[in-house]
Lab assay of single mutants.
Amino acid sequence: DAPDEFRDPLMDTLMTDPVRLPSGTIMDRSIILRHLLNSPTDPFNRQTLTESMLEPVPELKEQIQAWMR
């Protein structure tokens, strides 16, 4: 099983494109984008959230890719 820090906190699946929300939570980009289609909010604190506020986490993405090899 993947380490917890590699798993999306909402869907508990392996992240492939991790992004940091303004709240500091790291999620998979595809999952948070799907959530934003229904509700333009951070799913953990209900603060306003837009796609432009998502910050890529390239170092975590590299760690996940290395773990998958």
Score class of each variant (00 low, 15 high):
residue 48 T to M: 14
residue 51 E to T: 09
residue 13 T to F: 08
residue 42 D to I: 04
residue 20 R to W: 06
residue 32 I to F: 02
residue 69 R to D: 13
residue 16 T to P: 04
residue 17 D to W: 06
residue 36 L to P: 00
residue 69 R to V: 12
residue 23 S to A: 05
residue 4 D to R: 15
residue 39 S to L: 07
residue 6 F to I: 03
residue 48 T to Q: 12
residue 18 P to G: 02
residue 43 P to C: 06
residue 52 S to Q: 13
residue 14 L to Y: 06
residue 58 P to A: 09
residue 39 S to M: 08
residue 58 P to S: 09
residue 17 D to P: 02
residue 34 R to V: 11
residue 31 I to C: 09
residue 11 M to E: 13
residue 29 R to G: 04
residue 10 L to G: 03
residue 24 G to H: 03
residue 18 P to D: 00
residue 40 P to N: 12
residue 52 S to F: 11
residue 65 Q to M: 14
residue 18 P to F: 03
residue 55 E to K: 12
residue 55 E to Q: 13
residue 3 P to M: 05
residue 31 I to H: 09
residue 43 P to I: 02
residue 33 L to C: 11
residue 51 E to P: 14
residue 28 D to K: 00
residue 24 G to T: 01
residue 44 F to P: 02
residue 38 N to C: 13
residue 21 L to M: 05
residue 45 N to A: 05
residue 17 D to V: 03
residue 35 H to C: 10
residue 60 L to T: 01
residue 41 T to L: 09
residue 59 E to C: 10
residue 26 I to T: 05
residue 33 L to F: 06
residue 3 P to V: 05
residue 49 L to Y: 02
residue 3 P to W: 05
residue 56 P to G: 09
residue 50 T to H: 13
residue 42 D to R: 09
residue 68 M to G: 06
residue 57 V to M: 15
residue 50 T to D: 14
residue 47 Q to V: 10
residue 31 I to L: 05
residue 69 R to N: 14
residue 15 M to R: 00
residue 49 L to A: 01
residue 7 R to A: 03
residue 64 I to F: 01
residue 34 R to N: 13
residue 66 A to L: 13
residue 19 V to D: 00
residue 1 D to R: 15
residue 63 Q to E: 10
residue 10 L to H: 04
residue 41 T to I: 09
residue 69 R to H: 13
residue 16 T to D: 09
residue 57 V to W: 07
residue 11 M to Y: 11
residue 19 V to P: 02
residue 4 D to Q: 15
residue 61 K to R: 13
residue 26 I to V: 11
residue 51 E to V: 13
residue 33 L to D: 05
residue 11 M to D: 10
residue 36 L to H: 01
residue 2 A to C: 14
residue 30 S to Y: 11
residue 51 E to D: 08
residue 9 P to W: 07
residue 54 L to K: 02
residue 31 I to M: 06
residue 15 M to L: 04
residue 33 L to V: 11
residue 22 P to G: 03
residue 27 M to N: 02
residue 8 D to P: 02
residue 56 P to Y: 08
residue 13 T to Y: 07
residue 44 F to M: 05
residue 32 I to L: 06
residue 8 D to W: 04
residue 69 R to M: 14
residue 30 S to F: 11
residue 67 W to R: 01
residue 46 R to K: 15
residue 58 P to C: 08
residue 11 M to T: 14
residue 25 T to V: 15
residue 18 P to I: 03
residue 10 L to V: 09
residue 47 Q to I: 09
residue 30 S to K: 13
residue 50 T to A: 09
residue 44 F to Y: 07
residue 51 E to F: 09
residue 19 V to G: 02
residue 10 L to A: 04
residue 55 E to N: 08
residue 4 D to L: 15
residue 6 F to C: 06
residue 15 M to I: 08
residue 62 E to I: 11
residue 55 E to R: 12
residue 60 L to W: 03
residue 30 S to P: 12
residue 50 T to K: 08
residue 69 R to W: 11
residue 41 T to M: 09
residue 48 T to F: 15
residue 26 I to Q: 01
residue 54 L to N: 00
residue 68 M to C: 12
residue 29 R to Y: 08
residue 5 E to S: 12
residue 20 R to L: 07
residue 31 I to W: 08
residue 14 L to S: 05
residue 52 S to P: 08
residue 67 W to G: 02
residue 30 S to H: 14
residue 8 D to L: 04
residue 30 S to V: 11
residue 22 P to V: 04
residue 31 I to R: 00
residue 17 D to C: 09
residue 9 P to V: 04
residue 5 E to Y: 13
residue 66 A to S: 11
residue 5 E to G: 10
residue 25 T to K: 14
residue 61 K to S: 08
residue 49 L to I: 08
residue 4 D to K: 15
residue 12 D to K: 15
residue 17 D to E: 08
residue 66 A to D: 11
residue 61 K to Y: 11
residue 42 D to H: 03
residue 31 I to P: 02
residue 5 E to V: 11
residue 68 M to Y: 11
residue 62 E to R: 13
residue 60 L to Y: 03
residue 30 S to C: 13
residue 62 E to H: 11
residue 35 H to T: 03
residue 8 D to H: 05
residue 25 T to D: 05
residue 4 D to H: 15
residue 24 G to P: 01
residue 59 E to T: 10
residue 11 M to R: 08
residue 60 L to C: 06
residue 55 E to A: 10
residue 60 L to H: 03
residue 62 E to M: 13
residue 52 S to D: 15
residue 1 D to F: 14
residue 64 I to K: 00
residue 3 P to K: 06
residue 4 D to C: 15
residue 42 D to M: 01
